[in-house]
Design a protein around this nucleic acid. Sequence first.
DNA 1: TTGAAAGCGCTAACAT
DNA 2: ATGTTAGCGCTTTCAA
Lengths: 335, 335
Amino acid sequence: MKRTIYDVADAAGVSIATVSKVINGTGRISDKTRKHVVAVMDRLQYKPSMVASALTGKSTYTIGLTIPDLANPYFAEIARAVEDRGHEHGFNLFICSTDNDPEKEDRYFSLLTQKRVDGIIVATRTSKELFLKQLVQKKVPIVLIAGEMPALALDTVMVDDYLGGYQAGSHLVELGHRRIAILAEDLDHISNQERIRGCLQAMRDHGVAIDDSLVQVGGFTLDSGRTAATSLLNGSEPPTALFACNDLLAIASIQAAREQGLKVPDHLSVVGFDNTILATMIDPSLTTVAQPIQEIGRQAVDLLIQEIRNEKSIKQRAVLLPELIIRQSSAAIEP
Amino acid sequence: MKRTIYDVADAAGVSIATVSKVINGTGRISDKTRKHVVAVMDRLQYKPSMVASALTGKSTYTIGLTIPDLANPYFAEIARAVEDRGHEHGFNLFICSTDNDPEKEDRYFSLLTQKRVDGIIVATRTSKELFLKQLVQKKVPIVLIAGEMPALALDTVMVDDYLGGYQAGSHLVELGHRRIAILAEDLDHISNQERIRGCLQAMRDHGVAIDDSLVQVGGFTLDSGRTAATSLLNGSEPPTALFACNDLLAIASIQAAREQGLKVPDHLSVVGFDNTILATMIDPSLTTVAQPIQEIGRQAVDLLIQEIRNEKSIKQRAVLLPELIIRQSSAAIEP
DNA sequence: TTGAAAGCGCTAACAT
DNA sequence: ATGTTAGCGCTTTCAA
């Protein structure tokens, strides 16, 4: 039932080599034969098997993307950007949600390897550099998104988290805020650390005192974020502004504020990070540090493809700059 | 550099047939040899190539999922559910966002075919049954999600849209509403038609008059939805309640209401559909008809795998029931 | 219990 | 300009 190159060759009265050549546009074949073969392929609805062609050493035109969770809008948007750019180059995308579980991640890496993907884009926060090392050792092209891997020389696309934090902090200070809380998702991850560091530095640069008790961890869920934000707002000397290290936590903070009877931005200014679709959905719309998600996906894929094609001799790190988008969740402090 | 079954055979001093047998657990081999071979495979970090094994006729353990847009939270959640269930069975997932563009869809189908995926889950609103027919003809296992394909006998997992609409309508009527608007995303698609039909029927069953001018199309974006909702709210005899055919449109409606100085739910009750993560994020939290997204993904994968394994003789349609989740965006009509 | 050998569908020299 | 043929890494009879 399934058509093979032999069927086409037979039907066209030529050799399989000739068919292969017209498929790939290689070698030299007369216009006449080419057209004839193409016609026969059409008639037979023949589609060359990429499995077979991959076995002969050609590319699989497949890449893998590991992310913590596809249901998280930020990563869904990243994935979409990667998918689109990949598709433009004829690549298909394997999605791998790891929930930041090292075992799951390892299993995915293993599968991707066995399926001979051409390369992998890693957007997970791998604590286990071990797995990556193995891949590197096996010469699997890899590009990292939004995470640093100081011990490994890998192509990386990242956002300047420090600058983003600095922008958020400056914005709030310039609005007159002096007590600024920070809600991180996870202090272990370097991107969070940098966002915090940037925000604190902005405060320092503007002569604002820093209160360590105002920096808290909000976790990965709306619920945990709301809890953390609530405790922040219930302190003895509550903040008038809050910088959340991602949009989800920012929304959790707004919800917490509302529960405490605090109006945003009147009583509390909130700034997020990421600029996911969520930022425009909520009320008040969210002032947030925008990551150039499309560009991140595009550059990650482009780097990976260069790597795959062996067009690169050295690794590089692309640092993209974030941009503060001012919406309605931040305002000048009440007089 | 890359290890093959030959390397393992050599290193273990056995034939490749033996190695193959221990990999697959087939044939009979002494415990001694098995252990020895396993040890050698470990030492060599050997991973069998699924490309080669697929070429010999075995499954690729890969499925494709076509959706309109991965960046849309509803489809991201569906994709995550499909991914998870597939992963439990050792399948990897190719993501294909088509933007409902028939050409893109066709291109994806073509690629998936060439890569010999074991099956495809289709969650796009294919206007072109043509492509599906070709796949069916080629005996590619297919499962449809959330869309009807009356002309084709295909395994399908769907939600009872009519019932969902009915639940939404009943809820609003029981709250005392008499002027109920409906915002659809696209009247061409049957699931929207059914949701509307259900809502209207609920109104009729409760003796509520139906005003056709209160049914409008809101499109696929927040912006277009807000525009449509605005015009709905600006009519001569504005509605006191609105049923949106998905959460995105519901949110757009709430935004439109706010822009008009209308409070939700005080002046306007809003009910959505899908129960995506968005529903809990906005204020007021959204009353919405919940789709059992996990279950949809699970059943779609299970059906597909049965199909792949040839364990099914007849096609079937799984109709899952939606459930109304009452939150804060709907309330009894003002006296 | 193990191995030899014939494919799977395609590519890429190398001939012709 | 076209065809012959030897792999690619694995599975699977069929012998031994």
